[in-house]
Amino acid sequence: STQGAVSPGPPSVQPPWERASTPNKVPYYINHSTETTHWDHPQMLDLAAHLLQLNEVRFSAYRTALKLRSLQNKLCLDCVPLMTASEAFDLHGLRGQNDRILDIADMVLILRAIFESAAAEHPNVVDIPLCVDLALNWMLNVYDSQRTGQIRVLSFKVGLVILSKGHLEEKYRYLFRLIADPQQKADQRKLGLLLHDVLQVPRQLGEVAAFGGSNIEPSVRSCLGDREDLEVTHFLAWLNQEPQSLVWLPVLHRLAAAES
């Protein structure tokens, strides 16, 4: 592992904390005071403690939405418009590359571009090194718990877009476009991959049981019905019924809209 200087720019942690990397460049955090090491950034550990307190909230969709809103705020993804994330993905050659594997350097490059753009609009809110490290931390927690240092492009895009700023239908349409073929249709396999990646988000929050568990087959069957493949209108019609497996996402949007 490499302790000490890791990436250029100011560090996102202060003593007694230090950021280091494994041989496959996965960041981890050293606490010299407690002499411990952690995959989670110290501020992610604080956030996790806050999210545990939210377990007292009774209703599962509302509870999950509160957790997601806290996460969105902490990671400053509520300052990242969906288009900003989408443009960053395109600029880094990720369009149509769902199965390509991203390594840590790729992810950091894309996250940096995203948060530099967000910081231009919200300079007093977005701390770029911190946001990059927290977003990377969250994405690895959701899609690379074994810390191999690799995430598929589809998963990376889904994880960021879900928490980005945008209208609910905009997110739904974007998610569909990720799996649509040139005829704007998606098959059962691709729908399954998409729903699997979407459901990893509440799973990481300990909430997957509330939304039907991690088996996405019932959701795939419910969405497709008798069809062999899916068009965007069918996908939107299904989502507008707020199926149980995904109801946490429209509830997150209602929660955010209600804040004002």
């Binding site: 592992s1 010299h32 002499e35 411990t36 090491t37 927690n141 718990s145 810390r147 909430e207 049981a209």
Partner: peptide, 17 residues
């Protein structure tokens, strides 16, 4: 009651500076 998702692999052990 919600359960945390487990992380199976531990980070590198602590090494004093």
């Amino acid at each position: 009651r919600p359960k945390p998702a487990p992380t199976y692999r531990k980070p590198p052990p602590y090494v004093p500076p």
